[in-house]
Design a protein around this nucleic acid. Structure first.
Length: 891
RNA sequence: GGGAGUUUAGCUCAGCUGGUUCAGAGCAUCUGCCUUACAAGCAGAGGGUCACUGGUUCGAACCCAGUAACUCCCACCA
């Protein structure tokens, strides 16, 4: 029977994923085993898989599969997030294409469209995750707007309101004119932008000409006495100015104290006010105060009792209060007003200027500070315990460097604006009464009851529910609890069993958005932390270090990659380039390496599969078997250590080398029978057992090929449920250190023999004799079988004297001679030995320098001194042998 | 402006408490091989002033100080 030279993943992937599903291997229900739980950071319901998801979910799947194979009850809860602003924006855009405007729809009509959209596209990303091999318990799939989860949102809102942690108030908020909603501080991304700084002249209202000329005489400011000049990046907001502010200590402007000025173009009179807030050396030292459109100006306005003139509509266009350019977009208005100012002679100059501008994280629109009535959640009280969990180590952040950032944020946390002027999401459970009061209630019936307590005359018709919905994160911060119905049914078996969860794998970008708030919610609503470890992955970047993004077009399509390299290849590729806690420079070649790796495993399988066993043979290669057994156990310890520290990349690399180098390149070569020769039963059985163990350690990284091979008859009969996915990882076994060390020497011998072949152009097929002068006492005859096989040695003999005219090398202090047909050139040999001596002498010198240094001898630890002494003795022994060789060459 | 981090081979990264021949791994490169498991491979080899400058120490990639470059987070200077 011939087996394909290369493994074709596609068919196997589909077959085994379905098999796992059918046999409920991903399913988890509470039982007596130790739970291991991960809740998946829910991707946006309308999103598609990108490289960040690939990385994230590969890591989660590796952890989950490993836990499952360690006998834990592994539960990975998948789900999606309703992502209110992003989804609503998409639905609005979709409707617009159909010629439907959101404004023409009622709330229920709009929501109907939104749900249809969700039903249509909502499952895509989860389906894509299946291609990757994600072993989630799909029966537990949740959506943040599932009825139970929405109910949890309402309940927690009420809970926090009753506790006084939620309040309503007029505040300056971050307004997204595209999404037409407020967003939280965390959802504003500041970017440096090239802007223009406009210097605009405001005419001073003056009553006496004489005073003016006096000012002219005494002040040599760049400003005309008739005017003062302000600098602004936002000339379109001058119509909303309520004052000009100067620093009272600014000597240049003493003459302006108590004056008034005209706003250019509209000629409205505003006062000049004094406040030390103004920096004298920035711009002109004159600041236009626009309380409606700047947070600082707002606060300044509050202090000075200035009116708030809001000239912007919700969509960022100018309203009639602007008097001019009504209906124009703010950016169009900016350009036009610059021209108008210029024409009016009110524009002094324009400078290039770099400054930070806030953008909406979801729509990328420029954020507009806007005064509005919003709901807020107080954070201070909840932040304290959430900070403690991390500081005292109950929750570990991996890597630890994020602790500082986390602490800084938690110590400076501001209240959270939780209301959004959207329809897609959980509507705020506030009901307004005709008298302006409101009540907070779970249902309108309950609201009515409360209303009646205020005034029995109220009816349902008097109640109006708040139009707004809560921030998406106000539902996802409940995720680790709500997916287990911990609100609806706080004492149910699931929540009691799975909560707190074990590991959370997510991106550092949402440490504050989400992770911190989940910790707060966990403490507030469950009195316990939501998870014990937070693994913060890096950002997936391209080879040049740029963040992968749609607009740059530098992100490969994950599904194409899977198509090309197989899911196993892509998984390995992702992990190969993702050291713990660092960004990863992704390159397709990593996936190629992953593919090559599973192909290597496939071919090892082909080799073993082809062997015939002869029960009459009784010459097992016991040394090889013992050695690989030890080596395997040693690798297990290393892998365990890597996982314990969440060094997944290294765990994979340790596994990679174990399989490729130790198993394939060394072990299989050691025991491989000659072409078309049978193998003995014992070696065969051991090899099969090793291979099965290899499949196990590989499985978390490469689930598909390992499951495929697992079921081959090579490994014997399998029952339906006997699958690699639930096989138990081997427990750390015996490690024979001596054997491992000796084998390393044997490997060196073989490498040296190969080197001689290379140098002398001798074919590997040509058998060579080997003589050993063992000075160390190692009995090389023990390893005769391996040395003769891998070195293709015709005869291994022990000698007491040097062999002249042969190729030679040293391993440790043992001498090896390979007699060759042609005589070795003594001069060349002498040169080689001289070089080696030179190196050893240099080495010896540095060792001696230490040993002769009194301070070293008195300060260094005894074991360090001992090591140095051993080095010295070793070098001296080698030098002695080399000298002997030299003199025997001379003879 | 404040804070954190990074800098080790061509690339991506290990290097844990300062002490083995400590300067490592994988990939890439080079040389030789189509050797009956695998050319997606095999065998071998060559790559480094550990960013820079000083200091501490018997001893520094590692500790300290400073410098430079890059990255991230936070922050209301128009």
């Amino acid at each position: 029977m011939s087996i394909a030279k290369t493994y074709l993943p596609k068919e196997a992937e589909e077959k085994w994923y379905n098999y796992w599903l059918q046999h409920n291997f991903f399913r988890s229900v509470p039982d007596e085993r130790e739970p291991y739980t991960i809740v998946m950071p829910p991707p946006n319901v309308t999103g598609v898989l990108h490289m960040g998801h690939m990385l994230n979910n590969t890591i989660q799947d590796v952890l989950i599969r490993r836990a499952r194979m360690q006998g834990k009850n592994a539960c990975w809860v998948p789900g999606t997030d309703h992502a209110s602003i992003a989804t609503e924006a998409k639905v609005v855009a979709m409707l617009k294409e159909q010629g439907i405007s959101k404004a023409d729809l009622t709330r229920p009509e709009f929501l109907k469209y939104a749900w249809e959209w969700k039903e249509k596209y909502g499952g895509i990303i989860l389906e894509q995750l299946k291609k990757l091999g994600a072993s989630c318990d799909w029966d537990r799939t949740r959506f943040t707007m599932d009825p139970e989860l929405s109910e949890a949102v309402t309940d927690t809102f009420i809970h926090l309101y009753k506790k006084g942690l939620i309040y309503r108030g007029i505040r300056m908020v971050n307004w997204d004119p595209q999404g037409k909603t407020a967003v939280s501080d965390e959802e504003v991304i500041r970017k440096e932008v090239n802007q223009k700084l406009y210097y605009i002249k405001y005419k001073v209202v003056s009553d006496e000409l004489s005073m003016m000329s006096e000012s002219l005489a005494t002040h040599h400011s760049p400003l005309s006495a008739h005017y003062l000049t302000i600098a602004t990046t936002r000339p379109e907001t001058i119509m909303a100015d309520a004052a000009i502010c100067i620093n009272p200590n600014d000597e240049r402007y003493l003459h302006l104290h108590g004056k008034k000025v005209f706003i250019p173009l509209i000629n409205r009179e505003i006062p000049v006010i004094l406040d030390e807030y103004v920096t004298m050396d920035f711009g002109t030292g004159c600041l236009k105060v626009t309380p409606a459109h700047d947070l600082n100006d707002y606060e300044l306005g509050q202090r000075h009792n200035l009116p708030v003139i809001d000239i912007l509509n919700d969509d960022g266009t100018l309203n009639d209060k602007a008097q001019i350019l009504i209906g124009e977009d703010r950016f169009a208005a900016r350009k036009k007003i610059a021209v108008m100012l210029e024409e009016a002679g009110a524009l002094d100059k324009v400078e290039e200027y770099k400054s930070q501008v806030g953008f909406s994280e979801r729509t990328n629109a420029v954020i507009e500070p806007k005064l509005s009535m919003q709901w807020f959640c107080k954070m201070g009280e909840m932040a304290k315990p959430a900070l403690d969990y991390v500081l005292n180590g109950e929750i570990k952040l991996i890597p630890e460097k994020f602790i500082n950032t986390y602490r800084h944020w938690m110590e400076n946390v501001r209240d959270w604006n939780i209301s959004r002027q959207l329809w897609w999401g959980q509507q705020i459970p506030a009901y307004y009464l005709p008298n302006g009061q409101y009540v907070i209630a779970k249902t309108i019936e309950e609201a009515l009851e409360q209303a009646k307590a205020i005034d029995p005359k109220f009816t349902v018709n008097d109640l109006t529910q708040d139009e707004d919905v809560v921030d998406t994160w106000f539902s996802s911060w409940l995720w680790p609890i709500s997916v287990f119905d911990g609100f609806k049914d706080p004492d149910n078996a699931d929540i009691n069993y799975y909560y707190p969860t074990n590991d959370l794998v997510t991106a550092p970008e949402i440490l504050f958005f989400w992770v911190a708030r989940m910790i707060m919610a966990g403490h507030e609503f469950k009195g316990d932390l939501p998870f014990r470890n937070v693994y913060l992955t890096g950002i997936v970047r391209d080879k040049q270090g740029r963040k992968m993004s749609k607009s740059l077009g530098n992100s490969p399509d994950p599904l194409d990659l899977i198509e090309k390299y197989g899911a196993d290849g892509v998984r390995v590729g992702m992990l190969l380039c993702s050291p713990a806690g660092n960004d990863l420079m992704f390159d397709e070649s990593y996936c190629e390496q992953g593919r090559n790796f599973f192909n290597k495993v496939w071919n090892a399988f082909r080799l073993v599969k082809g062997w015939e066993v002869d029960d009459n043979l009784s010459n097992p290669n016991q040394i090889a078997i013992d050695w690989f057994g030890s080596r395997f156990n040693q690798a297990l310890v290393e892998i365990d250590g890597d996982f314990a520290q969440y060094r997944l990349s290294e765990a994979l690399m340790t596994t990679y080398k174990l399989v490729w180098d130790d198993f394939c390149a060394w072990y299989l070569e050691m025991i491989k029978p000659a072409y078309q020769q049978p193998i003995d039963r014992e070696t065969y059985n051991s090899t099969i057992a090793f291979f099965e163990n290899v499949l196990k350690v590989l499985h978390p990284f490469m689930p598909f090929i390992t499951e495929e091979l697992w079921h081959d008859e090579l490994f014997g009969e399998r029952t339906a449920m006997d699958c690699c996915i639930v096989a138990q990882l081997p427990i750390n076994g015996e490690i024979n250190a001596r054997l491992l060390a000796d084998t390393e020497m044997v490997k060196q011998i073989i490498t040296q023999i190969r080197n001689i072949r290379n140098a002398k152009q001798i074919s590997p097929k040509e058998a060579l004799p080997l003589s050993v002068k063992s000075n160390s006492g190692v009995d090389y005859l023990t390893y005769k079988a391996i040395i003769t096989k891998l070195g293709n040695i015709s005869e291994l003999t022990l000698v007491n004297d040097k062999v002249s005219g042969a190729g030679s090398f040293l391993v440790s202090t043992d001498e090896f001679y390979v007699p060759l047909n042609e005589n070795v050139d003594p001069a060349a040999e002498a040169e080689r030995i001289h070089k080696e001596k030179e190196y050893l002498n240099g080495f010896l010198k540095s060792v001696n320098a230490k040993l002769l240094n009194e301070r070293f001898m008195s300060n260094a630890k005894p074991e360090v001194i001992e090591i140095e002494q051993r080095k010295k003795a070793d070098a001296e022994a080698k030098l002695k042998i080399l000298d002997e060789s030299l003199s025997s060459l001379a003879n």
